[in-house]
């Protein structure tokens, strides 16, 4: 039995989790997965705190660690390892988490392990699986990232391709902004798309050159802008626009994004010979993506594992889960662990 504490502070969310692995089963047990924005800290704080500031993470982190231990009845002595996101992300907020993890590991006399945030997203679909899905192609698709990885094992992950401009989740948010539908855009566009015609507008599917597994969604965003306002125009198109037309644009845009994601994922499966596909990140919630990717992989005889919704957005359960698997494979970090804004691969 191995128990890991996980800490995530790479961007907006402060999160702390405790995860346990058992030698008798593949499935991990998530004891708790506390995310500050989904957890009422206001009473304990007595005021509103800024969302993205490093000091906000600092204030929340201590409370979340205490809450995680108290609510689960797990004592620091029961822990086997302290895991923490050390890259990529905002350097200031990453350093808050890394410094806290270093301090806790030192004072509790426990091993420390730094985790790559994107690798944790790439493996999050496996947290509660009964059998390992590797080797797999992992699609990580969120507001900040759109990447394909070849995952041979928890600690053997290579990048196949990534967006060269906008992330898919960002495209959803910006299309919602163009149509003035509100924020966050992903769920809203998904809902409006449900009643629209996905073939109403022939939006471009940017596949890039040759066998590239990179993505580009910037041109699609601009195409939606012109579809709404007219070629070369950027305003005026929303006056008198009908609900049907908004639904058609949302449906056609969603289909264009999903067609590219599905095509590139299939291409990655062919080029790697992987037998399964795992999907992580916030856009994994998109209903068109879930439907089309499941259908496409089923036709190819490939298993698809979608990350459970509670592990799709930034969270510490995926950090502790990824970290516990690395720990079991012998990985350790030095107590001098640093943070890095970028990933060098």
């Amino acid at each position: 039995m191995t128990i890991a504490l996980g800490i995530e502070t790479s961007c907006d969310e402060t999160s702390v989790a405790i995860v346990e692995s058992s030698p008798n089963e593949e499935r991990l047990r998530v004891h708790c997965n506390l995310i500050a924005t989904q957890f009422d800290l206001h009473a304990k704080f007595g005021g509103v705190v800024p969302e993205i500031a490093s000091r906000a993470h600092l204030q929340k982190l201590d409370l979340l660690v205490r809450e995680a231990l108290e609510s689960t009845g797990i004592a620091p002595a029961d822990l086997d390892v302290v895991t923490v996101t050390c890259m990529p992300g905002l350097i200031g907020t990453l350093l808050v988490g890394v410094t806290a993890a270093r301090t806790l590991a030192w004072s509790w006399d426990k091993p420390l392990l730094g985790v790559n945030h994107i690798h944790a997203h790439a493996t999050s679909a496996a947290i509660e699986l009964d059998a390992p899905p590797w080797p797999a192609v992992a699609l990580v698709v969120s507001g900040g990232h759109t990447s394909l990885y070849h995952v041979r094992d928890w600690d053997d992950i290579s990048l196949l391709g990534a967006t060269i401009d906008d992330a898919a989740g960002e495209a959803f948010d910006k299309v919602a902004a163009i149509l003035e539908l509100g924020y966050p855009g992903g769920p809203i566009v998904d809902r409006r798309a449900a009643t629209g015609n996905p073939a109403a507008v022939a939006f471009p599917r940017s596949m890039l050159k040759g066998e590239s597994l990179d993505f580009s969604f910037s041109g699609l965003k601009t195409a939606v802008l012109y579809e709404v306002h007219g070629r070369g125009n950027t305003s005026g198109g929303l006056v008198g626009i009908t609900e049907e037309r908004i639904a058609d644009i949302c449906a056609s845009f969603s289909q264009a994004v999903v067609d590219v994601l599905v095509a590139k994922t299939r291409q990655a499966v062919r080029s790697t010979g992987a037998r399964s596909v795992v999907v992580g990140g916030g856009v994994a919630a998109n209903s068109v993506l879930r439907r089309d990717l499941t259908a496409a992989c089923s036709a190819d005889g490939i298993a698809v594992h979608l990350t459970p919704m509670r592990y799709c957005t930034d969270n510490a359960a995926m950090i502790a889960s990824h970290g516990i698997r690395l720990f079991e494979r012998g990985h350790r970090s030095d107590l001098a662990l640093g943070a890095s804004a970028n990933v060098k691969d």
Partner: peptide, 26 residues
């Protein structure tokens, strides 16, 4: 910004992408 990065000698131009969600790219 991709062009500016090219002019500043950034080798991996693909890595120059939108920071809307991540807030800062380096």
């Amino acid at each position: 910004v991709k062009g500016i990065a090219r002019g500043l000698g950034v080798k991996n131009e693909r890595s120059v992408n939108s920071p809307t969600f991540v807030l800062v790219n380096e």
